[in-house]
Computed example of a mutant assay.
Amino acid sequence: MQFLFEIEDVFDISSRGCVLVPGVPDAFRRDVKTGEQLLIVTPQGTYIRTNIAGFEMISRGRPMVHAPFSLPRAVNKASLPVGSKVYLIDATDV
């Protein structure tokens, strides 16, 4: 399991699902693709196992060095507090 980032913001897009920001760092050591498995650990200690539904284009008024992505619509914004840690689950972790 590899740490990706800590959630700074969550956007709920009704037709797409929740988008996590900042997203996968551009400098991450391997390509991350749609469908990859994630583990999100909230500050309260709740575990959410999900996957990347798609990568999104977001303008935050400054150059981005991360790739924000959306989650399946079954995951709601209320369950994704700022400060939650997002981990990429490797095939060897399954």
Rank of each mutant, 00 (worst) to 15 (best):
M1E: 02
M1R: 03
Q2T: 12
Q2W: 08
F3M: 12
F3D: 06
F3C: 02
L4D: 05
L4M: 10
F5C: 01
F5S: 00
E6Q: 15
E6M: 12
E6V: 12
I7L: 03
I7Y: 05
E8I: 00
D9L: 11
V10M: 05
F11Y: 11
F11S: 02
F11I: 11
F11H: 02
D12A: 07
I13R: 10
I13D: 10
S14H: 13
S15T: 15
S15M: 10
R16T: 14
C18I: 08
V19N: 02
V19S: 06
V19H: 04
V21E: 04
V21F: 06
G23W: 08
G23N: 07
V24W: 02
V24E: 02
P25M: 08
D26F: 14
D26E: 11
A27M: 02
A27W: 03
F28W: 04
F28Q: 03
F28M: 12
F28T: 04
R29V: 00
R30M: 14
D31F: 07
D31K: 12
K33C: 06
K33G: 01
K33I: 04
K33T: 05
T34N: 06
G35A: 08
G35N: 09
G35T: 07
G35Q: 05
Q37L: 08
L38C: 06
L38T: 01
I40G: 00
V41I: 15
P43H: 11
Q44N: 13
Q44K: 14
T46V: 09
R49Y: 07
T50V: 06
N51F: 09
A53Q: 12
A53K: 09
G54A: 15
F55P: 09
M57Y: 11
I58V: 15
I58S: 10
I58Q: 09
I58F: 15
S59L: 10
S59E: 13
G61I: 00
G61A: 02
R62H: 10
P63D: 05
M64D: 10
A67K: 15
P68I: 03
P68A: 11
F69K: 04
S70A: 15
P72D: 11
P72A: 08
A74S: 14
V75G: 02
N76I: 04
N76L: 06
K77A: 14
K77V: 07
A78M: 06
S79H: 12
L80M: 14
V82N: 08
V82L: 00
S84D: 01
S84N: 08
K85D: 00
K85V: 04
V86H: 05
V86S: 09
V86G: 02
L88M: 07
L88K: 04
L88S: 07
L88P: 05
A91Y: 02
A91Q: 13
A91I: 10
T92I: 11
T92F: 04
T92P: 00
V94R: 13
